[in-house]
């Protein structure tokens, strides 16, 4: 059976019975979102990947404690964000680096690569100026499509606080990225 059509809860059930392939399918499905969220928190791609790997391994160890009656994504996100915070607490995060044009868009013309790298850098800087909780809330809501309740579950805060964080973060981002946002619409 193709794992792409299998629900998260079913893959998690198989993984809990020792099926590494099922867990691999979950990683393939959710790695982009958890890596982006870890990067929003830590501000550095390499640290984000270390945290995502630590968190995903922790999820593999704890998969038999996952409750299939609840959504899988917030459960996984909470574990990965805990791993990211742990990395941050231990003070081993690297300094945030500007994004290089080659990394930004391999295969593009040099001018477009430079433009795109500049845009990404500007967005990353605007995001970095937000308080940590707002950064995570707006990334999870606007970029990853999490519901307010799921974000509240993953971050361990009330849903009303998530709504307020998304609102304030978005307002700050609109102020910082006004013209860019207009071009994107």
């Amino acid at each position: 059976m193709r794992t792409s059509s299998v629900a998260d809860a079913e893959l998690a059930r198989r993984a809990a019975s020792g099926d590494g392939g099922a867990f691999g399918a979950l990683v393939d499905r959710h790695a982009p979102a958890v890596r982006r969220a870890a990067r929003a928190l830590l501000g550095n791609e390499h640290d984000a990947d270390d945290a995502a790997q630590d968190g995903l391994l922790a999820a593999w160890r704890a998969i038999d404690r996952y409750d299939p009656a609840r959504p899988f994504r917030p459960w996984l996100m909470r574990i990965v964000l805990n791993a990211a915070r742990d990395l941050q607490r231990r003070g081993i995060v690297r300094r945030a680096e500007p994004i290089s044009p080659a990394e930004a868009a391999p295969g593009m013309s040099p001018e477009r690569e430079t433009d795109r790298a500049l845009i990404r850098d500007k967005v990353a800087r605007a995001l970095a100026r937000l308080p940590e909780r707002q950064r995570l809330a707006v990334t999870m809501f606007d970029a990853e499509g999490f519901a307010h309740a799921e974000i509240a579950d993953a971050l361990g805060i009330p849903e009303g606080t998530v709504r307020s964080d998304v609102f304030h973060a978005r307002r700050a981002l609109r102020e910082a990225l006004g013209s860019l946002l207009e071009e994107t619409r």
Binding site: R36, I119, V123, L127, V138, G145
Partner: peptide, 9 residues
């Protein structure tokens, strides 16, 4: 906002 954030991250 979502598109810009996804691209940057």
């Amino acid at each position: 906002v979502g598109r810009l954030l996804r691209d940057a991250l």
